[in-house]
Design a protein around this nucleic acid. Structure first.
Lengths: 202, 202
DNA sequence: GTCTATATATGGATAGAC
DNA sequence: GTCTATCCATATATAGAC
């Protein structure tokens, strides 16, 4: 009789339990449709603890927000260190985001789906976050290096990442039914060379 | 003394007043941060009337949702009637959306910014709406006609419209500071021919 | 059909024991 | 630090007069 097996491994720290419970609930039902009582119940923690650790519901959301923005930033940072050229970096970021959409669904959903200003007062607007700033600066590097076409960097950043972000949203909504990585190369192709069929008589 | 001027022209019908007030408030503060009392106050209508006409706050949101999806559908419909080729239709839709973002800001914001499932139960998911379906079918037409590259239509639709949608969101968030139509041609260029600089030595 | 006043529930927040 | 029980504001929804 494997007695020791019944010992739960290492119990997760309490604030971590709260955050993961909150993330799941917020993504599933939306911030405003989730009560502290529900978070408390799912996290197996008392209300008092939630107030102790985060000061309330919005405090939980803020902590979550910061934490997840950090993760995103690290993702971009890693890619930048690993690949030399701006375009390779863009490619890698899109591939990573597609992977993450499948493996860390709720994190991605929290980043791309929610309108954070609705529940985080004094919201340092997602697109001003370190991760998104870095994505734009990659694009600027590419322009300066003569790799990308020379135009407004907001437009170009939107052109490069907009399609991917759109696909992520469609995937999260369940509209796209197959895992995103299957579509990665296709998407990258259109970003590189546009959407037109090569004219065979050209 | 121009006495007649003081007569308000034709008073707007009551349900219209409610909808426009609600639209503005929902976009500004988010559905859950707006109380019926605020809508009532801004629309200069009593709470009873709101319940009579729409059955409650969610009813107002649903009516708004339907109405606005209709407008979007008409926009796409008109473009399809006016332009012959799929690509011209795509171009025109993007230009129209950019225009609308400036002239009907809150309508566009309601369409692209909100996560409707959070406040509309049984939400016929935006991307399944007539307008979005038609956009995708335009893309399919382009593929069949050999105009667009032959690939999954979700990917291609995202490639074509994703950048525009992204720019609309950035504009609504105040990140992009100039009116979108200024960027229209730039964006269309990258969709057509990709993001790379033409190599002068090619 | 429109209004005002009110009932009722929900849920964020706190107090105080352990 | 953690818990339970309770408070109290808010906001949806309704009742009933006009």
């Amino acid at each position: 009789m494997p007695y020791l097996k019944k010992c739960p491994p290492v119990p997760e720290p309490i604030d971590c339990r709260i955050l993961t419970a909150a993330l799941d609930l917020f993504v599933e039902n939306g911030f405003h449709n989730v009560s502290i009582h529900e978070v408390q119940k799912r996290a197996q923690v008392s209300i008092g603890s939630i107030y102790n650790h985060f000061g309330g519901k919005e405090g939980v959301a803020q902590a979550l927000y910061k934490h997840i923005l950090n993760e995103m930033d690290e993702l971009v940072e890693t890619v930048m260190a690993e690949f030399p050229t701006p375009w390779q970096q863009c490619e890698a970021i899109i591939r990573q985001l597609f992977e993450h959409t499948e493996t860390h669904r709720n994190i991605i959903a929290f980043v791309f789906h929610a309108k954070h200003t609705e529940f985080i007062s004094q919201d340092p607007l997602m697109c001003h976050s370190a991760a998104f700033s870095k994505m734009r600066s990659i694009v600027r590097n590419g322009i300066e290096a003569g790799e990308f076409v020379d135009m407004d960097s907001w437009v170009l950043t939107s052109s490069i990442f907009g399609g991917a972000i759109r696909m992520i949203q469609l995937r999260l909504d369940g509209v796209i039914e197959k895992p995103l990585p299957e579509y990665g190369e296709m998407l990258l192709q259109t970003i590189r060379t546009g959407v037109f069929q090569e004219r065979s008589d050209a």
